[in-house]
């Protein structure tokens, strides 16, 4: 772990966290995380429930003091000077924290006032923002009548009124339908085009793939790998071959396949697949079939596909349940605690 050093913090990363540790009792939720986010980029923290994503966001957005570590956001030490840091950041948490009894306009204006805008400025900016996120039509309706996707966009937009340099979005699309998800993605991209830096968390691999300039895969409080989505996929080789052996014979198949290709052959017991990288594409696939043929082994199925972040995630966190399962849990907060406890 590099020693924390305020003065040497490079002006380049707008978020610069080093050695962050957070413990809840004897549970270590964040276990020595270093994280740098480039100004004007989108960074996605990808991981299952209980991985420590939300806790890390809470530290960076001044809601939680870490047990160890230093975090600079927009040049301000969030641990030492939270009030100043709050003038530079925006947070949209896991729930759309909008007030059902107020209209969309009233919600955004209220946040504007709390960001210390004058009443007139707050009013003008609110109209601009509602226009920009396509909620002008619904601006004077109570939020109680909004759909989940509209609430999310409003929640996100409410923080924009303070012109934050860094926006923290904790699972911005959890619990909303796929169409609304695209709407939120467009809004995030629009934000970044306007100069804001976005650090988001997600359990959806597709989301990280679509949105993020860089992806950090987080599991059990540690960032286990980091890079662009493409870099992460490249570590898996060009193509993935999946071989489905007849029941009970995967060890036999694994031995034969291991000699046919370079790279690791992994067994996915849940799906009943042997998974192997095919660096040479079709040539590798033919080598696979030749090797099987020579050994007189006939698989039930052979498929190939380009690697997805799923493959990266599964290969990195092999002992865990697939991340996407957790996304169906209706109560992320509760399952997060459960997940954390289950691991100890």
């Amino acid at each position: 772990m590099p020693p924390p050093d305020h003065s040497a913090a490079s002006p380049d990363p707008i978020v610069d966290a080093r050695g962050i540790v957070v413990r809840f009792g004897d549970v270590t939720a964040v276990d020595g995380v270093d994280l740098q986010v480039r100004r004007g980029s989108i960074y996605a923290l990808l991981g299952p429930n209980g991985a420590g994503k939300t806790t890390l966001i809470r530290v960076l957005s001044t809601l939680l003091k870490p047990d160890a570590g230093v975090a600079m956001v927009a040049g301000i030490d969030v641990v030492a000077d939270p009030p100043m840091a709050r003038t530079r950041i925006g947070l949209a948490g896991q729930f759309a924290a909008v007030d059902e009894y107020q209209t969309g306009r009233e919600n955004v204006e209220m946040i504007g006032r709390l960001y210390r805008l004058s009443r007139a400025e707050s009013r003008t900016r609110t109209s601009e923002i509602l226009e920009r996120i396509g909620l002008m039509e619904a601006a004077d309706r109570r939020v109680g009548t909004y759909s989940g996707g509209m609430r999310r966009r409003l929640d996100l937009a409410a923080s924009l009124i303070g012109r934050p340099e860094v926006m923290f979005l904790d699972e911005p699309t959890t619990g909303i339908d796929p169409r609304s998800r695209v709407g939120v993605w467009e809004l995030v991209q629009d934000l970044v085009a306007g100069g804001t830096t976005v650090l988001l968390t997600t359990q959806y691999l597709e989301e990280a793939d679509q949105l993020a300039d860089r992806v950090g895969v987080i599991d059990r409080g540690r960032i286990i790998t980091e890079g662009t989505a493409d870099e992460l996929k490249d570590t898996m080789g060009g193509t993935i071959v999946e071989v489905e052996p007849p029941a009970g014979r995967h060890e036999e198949f694994r031995r034969v396949l291991a000699s046919a290709v370079e790279g690791e052959v992994t067994w996915d017991p849940q799906r009943g697949h042997l998974r192997l990288p095919a660096a040479e594409g079709a040539a590798s696939l033919m080598a696979v079939t030749r090797a099987l043929d020579a050994a007189d082994l006939v698989p039930d199925d052979i498929t190939t596909h380009k690697p997805t972040l799923d493959d990266v995630f599964l290969s990195l966190t092999e002992d865990d349940a697939p991340a996407t399962n957790a996304a169906d849990d209706p109560d992320p907060q509760r399952s997060r605690t459960r997940g954390r406890k289950a691991r100890r």
């Binding site: 003038t87 948490g93 960001y115 210390r116 409410a158």
Partner: peptide, 13 residues
């Protein structure tokens, strides 16, 4: 429970 307090705490208020 619905995140409003978190939002308030992240604001410079």
């Amino acid at each position: 429970n619905n995140g409003v307090i978190d939002r308030f705490r992240s604001l410079p208020m």
